[in-house]
Design a binder for these strands. Sequence first.
DNA 1: TTGATCTGATAAATCGTTTTATCAAAACCA
DNA 2: TGGTTTTGATAAAACGATTTATCAGATCAA
Lengths: 334, 334
Amino acid sequence: MKSLSIKDIALKANVSITTVSFIINGKAKEKSISEAVIKKVEKIIIESGYKPNQIARSLRTGNSNIIGLIVEDISNSFFSKVARLIEDKAYKKGYKIIYSSTENSVEKAKELINMFKSRKVDAYIISPVAGIEDDIKLLLNDNKPVILFDRNLPGVDTNYVGANHFTATYQSIESFIKEGKKNIALVTTDVSVQQIIERFDGYKQALTDFKLPYNENLVLKIPFGQAEEETISNIKELFKNNKIDAVLFATNYLAISGLKAVKQINKTIGKDLSVIAYDDHEAFELHTPLISAVQQPLEEIAETVIKLILNQLSSKTKLANQQVIIPAKLISRN
Amino acid sequence: MKSLSIKDIALKANVSITTVSFIINGKAKEKSISEAVIKKVEKIIIESGYKPNQIARSLRTGNSNIIGLIVEDISNSFFSKVARLIEDKAYKKGYKIIYSSTENSVEKAKELINMFKSRKVDAYIISPVAGIEDDIKLLLNDNKPVILFDRNLPGVDTNYVGANHFTATYQSIESFIKEGKKNIALVTTDVSVQQIIERFDGYKQALTDFKLPYNENLVLKIPFGQAEEETISNIKELFKNNKIDAVLFATNYLAISGLKAVKQINKTIGKDLSVIAYDDHEAFELHTPLISAVQQPLEEIAETVIKLILNQLSSKTKLANQQVIIPAKLISRN
DNA sequence: TTGATCTGATAAATCGTTTTATCAAAACCA
DNA sequence: TGGTTTTGATAAAACGATTTATCAGATCAA
């Protein structure tokens, strides 16, 4: 059951391999192949169901029509939704996406980059972890388009698409304060990636601007990858040990654990406790009461990422790097 | 910035390309290469950071160490979670996964299979749509391992891993009946894939066995891919036009839409309306009241899929096809 | 001593494309 | 007419690995 090669087609059509190749690649006109030959070869290709071997093609041309997408965790709904949108849009332009999760491990991220590199992907979309700056610089030296998204990597000069995490966080805290809240907690993760830091900074800045004291006991940093039960018990501790009347969760999975924690202790969300989650989730629209959330414009992020990539892939000259900051918006569900 | 090739390494080490290749592939002993040469070449490889070009390797060997995973929709949490588990497990065995979504389109599914085929993936994990039977048979003829999961394809003789949808549905309906419910609705989709049909059959069989009439007005089939607002309004209609005291949602996203619908009309889940969702979701654990759900054992499914694949990849002879049915369990959260 | 086996290594074919260089014949031009 | 350009097509090199066949010299067995 060997699959057909261009050679078989050439044989059947009684022309050379070169001719077939030109026809396949739409260079027939340019290379002045006669109409009759084009027709004949095309007919044979269709009838035989011949599909060019992409591996051989990639080996020769050095590109693959594949874009590599590296995210933190494909099972997180934020990433899976963005991935799906990116996939759709890329697909329409003839590009395929292959994705993989880093789980925030520097080592795995490096391995993935190497894997993609040895597969000759044409471009990279990366939600990076700190520590892979040099690997990314290598890609850039290699003239491969690299778009960072969701979080930037200070020290790497490339394209970035992300939401305005600082402002969105600031506004969330501001809204708590305007409700009259005074003891505002932040539940975040311990990974030091830029978007998490920005969220932390937005929190602190809002407190300062509105003349509330910053109390580090109200900031809980959950280790990334920690089992959920432990996270829930950490959060219960937080509430037990402190007087808290509002809480911002810096990621949607933390908010989910947090809501479970709140359920287990005797707190009711509403008057005595306000909650905002960062990154929306179906659960928040269904929760009783509804949970407010900071919503990143997924569609717009995906669209921008793809646009930047395609621009670069189609331009022969190196384009100026762009930093696209897209506003995130607080969806108040009170 | 050309990347290094095996030729460069051979040159530097002053040996032949063949020798380097043997060393890279661990055949040095077998091919009786001297210890000294092995050491020298390995040193150069490490120092130079040489990584073999996988494309060239694939072209020559015909395989890729890549497994293709085709799901219905990667942004559905059931699939993204299974995908992530499969990815982890495959990764540990040196295989990479590339995934893509079919969106239940026959055409897109065929295209994806072709894309994977022309990339020479070593094996296929597919959550199929009806209509791609012939394409799958071609893969099998080609001696590529194919594992169907989540839903089987009658008429294709290959491996299958999935939950016992019939029994789980039957038990769900049975539990409604034991609560004393008499007007039990089913909200499902219009796609005629096996797992959906099984769920439907389980529903009907349970009604029959417990001597309840089957009323087709109580079965709502939502077109796949329909906008959520419309789904919600369909479900509201269902409740408006019928006396319903229990409802089984055949997928988690339908359950989410359904819960939103219930929220909008004046129904309260509890005494007057019981709800079970098929496939669990974070939202159900947080909902007030808690929502019961049929939980598929994701970990076990992923584990079994990978095991079947690896067995086949490592065995030279064709193994007998296996149909692994894993029990799904009803998590009662009342 | 001679033929056989082992040791250590390599040259060259191969995988299936794309692309460059080349060529013969026809058409054009002055 | 003879030189130049166009037309229509091809042969062969290249991409970067793996693998088969081959080889010279050393060792061994009888």
